[in-house]
Amino acid sequence: MISPILSVARDGSAPGAPSLVEALENGSVLVFHDEDFPFSDFEKRFVERPFADGKAKNVNIRGKEAALRGAAGTPEEQEALRQLLIRYKAFAQGLIDRHLPAYTGKVTLAGTSYRPFEVDQRKLSWRRDDTRLHVDAFPSNPIGEKRILRIFRNINPNGQPRLWRVGEDFGSMAEKFLPRLPGYSPLSARLLATLRITKARRSEYDHLMLHLHDALKQDMEYQQKGPQADVQFAPGQTWVTFSDLVMHGAMGGRYMLEQTAYLPVTSQADPELSPQRILAKKLGRKLR
């Protein structure tokens, strides 16, 4: 089954429809059409040209100090961009509180990013090529027993949609790719953490997800012929998904905001729907 795209009205899901949490945990992409996030006259310059130094594919804020990284412009403009990202972070938290209240107090908001560049113009290695279908995994930042929840918004001022494609459900993909993956080495995981190559010890789950990410991106036959569907997100739309569960590729568009959040697996409505538990079931044992 290809990941469903579920449109959400301002007042939530329709009567009799699955709850938004249930839909999300089952691999849907939730699309919100009526969430307001206006720009001030000063902020409109950030969608007229990229305010980025070009050294990375996005500009972001991280940490308690919300330090801005990768931006360009005058000090005044950079501070305004920083404040815009702080405001988007609050917007994302508000969306969770209104539409996914079961997660309120359980999610931890992480990095917030401004993505002004055209997807198709980025010249990246295959591993960093996000036009290829993939699930999210972070090489230096092991996730362990957490989920990756992401809130995106198209802020393009000229009507250009954000183009995605989504793939088949995680379980079906895992059945195809798990037999190809190398075994997990706890010793190697400890060494990477000791050398501070990773911020914490990679679990077996982290190991599997990194290799699934790479195996998917390297398999060009699967990229071209695997189950998939094209999706367009119009300017002003906000979409939310578990990006560690939903295979996705960004195919086009420029000017987007993104918020990453982490949710403990045990805080899900149904932890058995997590990729952690799905992979364990496929292997017939607990992950190390």
Results as ranks from 00 to 15, higher is better:
P4S: 09
I5R: 11
V8Q: 09
S13R: 13
S13K: 05
S13D: 07
P15C: 10
A17V: 08
L20K: 12
L20V: 10
E22P: 02
E22C: 12
A23N: 15
N26H: 14
S28N: 10
V29Y: 04
L30T: 06
L30N: 07
D36L: 13
R45I: 12
F46G: 05
R49D: 00
F51P: 00
A52K: 01
D53C: 00
K55N: 01
A56I: 01
A56T: 00
R62N: 10
G63F: 12
E65H: 03
L68C: 07
R69G: 03
R69D: 10
E77S: 10
Q78K: 15
A80E: 15
L81H: 13
Q83F: 12
L84I: 11
A92I: 09
Q93N: 15
Q93F: 10
Q93H: 15
L95Q: 07
L95G: 11
I96D: 03
I96P: 04
D97F: 06
R98L: 14
P101T: 08
P101N: 09
T104E: 04
V107H: 10
L109W: 05
L109D: 01
G111W: 02
T112E: 05
R115D: 03
P116V: 06
Q121W: 03
S125H: 10
D129L: 09
L133N: 03
H134I: 06
D136C: 13
D136R: 05
P139F: 14
P142E: 06
P142A: 11
K146L: 14
R147G: 02
L149Q: 03
R153A: 08
N154G: 05
N156L: 02
N156M: 06
N158H: 08
N158W: 03
P161D: 03
W164A: 08
V166D: 05
E168R: 09
E168S: 13
K176W: 01
F177E: 01
F177A: 03
L178G: 02
R180C: 05
L181E: 04
L181I: 13
S185C: 00
P186H: 08
P186K: 07
P186G: 12
L187D: 09
R190P: 00
L192K: 14
T194N: 01
T194V: 00
R201V: 13
R201G: 00
R202G: 02
R202C: 01
R202P: 00
Y205H: 14
D206N: 09
D206L: 10
L208E: 02
L212W: 07
L212C: 11
H213F: 15
A215N: 12
L216W: 02
K217C: 06
Q218K: 15
E221P: 01
G226S: 06
Q228C: 06
A234P: 01
T238A: 15
W239M: 12
T241L: 15
S243V: 15
V246M: 11
V246L: 11
M247P: 07
A250I: 11
M251R: 15
G252I: 12
G253R: 08
R254D: 14
Y255G: 02
M256A: 15
L257A: 07
T260V: 08
T260D: 12
L263G: 08
T266Q: 14
T266C: 08
S267N: 07
A269I: 09
D270R: 13
L273E: 01
P275S: 03
P275F: 01
Q276R: 08
R277W: 04
A280V: 04
A280W: 04
A280Y: 02
K282R: 14
L283S: 04
L283Q: 12
